[in-house]
């Protein structure tokens, strides 16, 4: 079972690998994400900063950091709607 934990703003999320991507489990919130969401969250769980995550993903995908940054920031924006990773938009994402 591939499952990891990622902490954000005092909350602990469990992220479980699924064939479609991942299931994200908060205390009162259940969200499904695709493979990209899984990869981003996995990097956050390893303690990577937003910038580090963007660079790692750009390297892995052989894409430009600007393109990846755009995608990741749009993901972060979606996470913010759930109250997750607001720390990134308050600092690095500005």
């Amino acid at each position: 079972m591939r499952l990891f934990v990622v902490k954000t703003g005092g909350r602990t999320l469990r992220v479980r690998k699924e064939d479609f991507g991942c299931a994200i489990l908060d205390r009162d919130l259940y969200v499904e994400g695709n493979e990209t969401v899984y990869k981003v969250l996995e990097l956050f769980s390893q303690g990577k900063t937003l910038e580090e995550a963007i660079h790692i993903l750009a390297e892995r995908e052989n894409a430009s950091p600007e393109e990846v940054r755009k995608d990741v920031l749009s993901l972060i924006k979606m996470f913010n709607d759930f109250g997750w990773f607001c720390e990134f938009t308050e600092t690095e994402g500005e």
């Binding site: 079972m1 499952l3 469990r14 299931a23 489990l25 259940y30």
Partner: peptide, 10 residues
């Protein structure tokens, strides 16, 4: 313990 560790949500 197992239920939590395999990702049971509810």
């Amino acid at each position: 313990d197992e239920m939590f560790n395999i990702g049971v949500y509810d």
